[in-house]
């Protein structure tokens, strides 16, 4: 469980996150949704400490992350896996080396154990026979899988995914969403996902918050989202033709 209390963050005097409070639950897929530029990535990067918050507190299962020094955070960092928007695989390493990397840097495993663990993770994301390829040689969907494998290599308790299906075709998006959902339940992780894809929202939103211009406007689950009664959220949810049709269909 991750608790975020009244966090605010600005850049060069411009406030990007305003007083956001929320609880992200364990064993669930927690979604942060909102339009582009609404502050989803900033919120996520504040939560993991890539940005320092200006105000407020972040607690990982009661441990006050925001008050810790860089060194103290190291132990929590080891429990965090993160999937970046562009996958962020290391260009100079093969697929297998990418997945083994956190193990090499952070664990005391020997070469054999690392390779086994890496292959277990690669198999878990259904990626066989790609071990010796470089990131430049594989497709966007495969990169995401490798990035997921790398993120779960250290058996994290907390998994963060920044727009996991950006740049993927609809079918691959669904596969990646399913995969994240499965591993969340399987390993009982606290998963936090940023997305603006309504398909993902409806498919896996156990616990959703809607961010609008840096503020939390709404929270709930995918069941309630279609009739939230919140104007900004409705504009977001029913932005696409498909969703408008769905609304018309539901009304009739």
């Amino acid at each position: 469980m991750i608790q975020v209390q009244n966090i605010s963050k600005g850049f060069y005097g411009k406030l990007v996150l305003k007083n956001v409070t929320n609880t992200f639950e364990e064993g669930k897929v927690n979604l942060i949704i909102g339009g582009s530029g609404s502050g989803k990535t900033v919120l996520m990067k504040c939560m993991v400490g890539l940005y320092e918050v200006d105000e407020g507190a972040i607690e990982y299962d009661g441990r006050d992350f925001s008050a810790m020094t860089k060194l103290e955070r190291k132990s929590i960092r080891r429990e965090i896996g993160m999937l970046f928007q562009g996958s962020a695989l290391f260009d100079s390493m093969t697929v297998e080396e990418n997945v083994m990397f956190p193990l090499t840097m952070l664990s005391k495993m020997d070469e054999e154990e690392k390779r086994d663990r890496a292959n277990f993770c690669l198999q878990r994301v259904n990626l066989d026979n790609a071990n010796n390829l470089f990131p430049a040689e594989i497709s966007g969907g495969m990169k995401k899988r490798v990035a997921i494998a790398r993120a779960i290599a250290m058996k994290p308790k907390y998994l963060f995914c920044d727009e996991p299906n950006s740049g993927l075709d609809p079918k691959t998006s669904i596969v990646i969403d399913e995969l994240i959902k499965e591993i969340t339940y399987e390993f009982q992780m606290t998963t936090v996902i940023n997305t603006h894809d309504m398909n993902s929202v409806l498919m896996m939103g156990d616990n959703i918050i809607f961010i609008y211009k840096g503020e939390k406007f709404w929270s709930g689950s995918s069941k309630d989202i279609l009739n939230s009664g919140n104007e900004q959220l409705e504009n977001f949810v029913f932005a696409s033709k498909v969703m408008q049709d769905l609304r018309r269909h539901l009304k009739n």
Binding site: L50, R73, K74, R77, R78, F84, Q85, A88, L89, L106
Partner: peptide, 17 residues
């Protein structure tokens, strides 16, 4: 610079490196 703009540096930092 490429590692920075493609978030590879963030990925290192996340691992506590």
């Amino acid at each position: 610079g490429t590692m920075r703009v493609t978030e590879q540096i963030d990925a290192l930092e996340i691992m506590g490196i």
